[in-house]
Simulated scan of single mutants.
Amino acid sequence: MTEIRQGGCHCGAVRFRFTMPDEPLIRRCNCTICAMKGIVMLDVPKTDVEITAGKDALSTYTFGSGVAKHHFCSNCGIHVLQELRSEPANCAVSLASIDGMSIYDLPETQVFDGQNHPADTGDYNYIGVLKFERHQR
């Protein structure tokens, strides 16, 4: 069964929807920008993502090779998605911007080695996991 999910930025100016992959790939990345943003990403085929509101509010940041495009709301600054250098047919949706989802629902999140990017090294590696454990009250 196809599951359509929606999400958006903090101020609500940008909204999007996408088809949830059957086997979602959720990860963090240790590249310079992702590490600073602390983002958790859900990889989705580009053809399955649609900006439904606020396309004009989106700004784009790129650096280095210029291939990855980091899209964020120009009003509230929240990163909502990025076009991936490692997987050009996919984009990464910020899990925190998906309605009804939280990064704190994930006990473990794989960390992709973006500092040693596969486009540069030929190796697609994960370097570890980040864990979240709830305190017992």
Rank of each mutant, 00 (worst) to 15 (best):
M41G: 07
M41D: 10
M41E: 09
L42Y: 08
D43W: 03
D43V: 01
V44P: 03
V44M: 08
V44E: 05
P45A: 08
P45D: 06
P45I: 07
K46L: 12
K46T: 12
K46M: 09
K46R: 13
K46A: 14
T47P: 03
D48M: 01
V49N: 01
V49L: 13
V49W: 06
V49H: 06
E50S: 10
E50G: 12
I51Y: 05
I51K: 06
A53Q: 15
A53P: 14
A53M: 09
A53N: 13
G54K: 03
K55F: 00
K55W: 00
D56S: 12
D56C: 03
A57Q: 09
A57M: 07
A57V: 12
A57S: 09
L58K: 04
L58F: 02
L58V: 06
L58Y: 01
L58M: 06
L58N: 05
L58E: 04
S59W: 04
S59I: 02
S59A: 14
S59K: 15
S59G: 15
S59Y: 04
T60W: 13
T60F: 10
T60D: 15
T60G: 12
T60K: 15
T60E: 15
Y61E: 08
Y61V: 13
Y61I: 14
Y61T: 12
T62H: 08
T62E: 08
T62K: 01
F63D: 06
G64T: 05
G64W: 12
G64D: 11
S65I: 01
S65F: 06
G66Q: 11
V67I: 11
V67H: 07
V67S: 11
V67C: 04
V67Y: 05
V67N: 10
K69M: 08
H71S: 01
H71C: 00
H71V: 02
H71M: 02
F72Y: 13
F72N: 04
F72E: 03
C73E: 04
C73M: 06
C73K: 07
S74W: 01
S74N: 02
N75M: 11
N75Q: 13
N75V: 11
C76E: 01
C76L: 04
C76P: 07
G77W: 15
G77R: 13
I78Y: 07
I78Q: 05
I78H: 03
I78C: 07
I78N: 06
I78A: 07
I78G: 02
H79N: 14
H79V: 15
V80A: 14
V80D: 12
V80I: 15
V80R: 07
L81Y: 14
L81A: 09
Q82T: 06
Q82C: 12
Q82W: 11
Q82D: 09
E83V: 15
L84G: 02
L84K: 09
L84R: 13
L84F: 00
L84Q: 07
L84W: 00
R85F: 03
R85E: 14
R85V: 04
R85I: 01
R85D: 11
S86M: 05
E87G: 08
E87T: 15
E87M: 12
E87V: 14
P88C: 07
A89L: 08
A89K: 11
A89G: 00
A89C: 00
N90W: 02
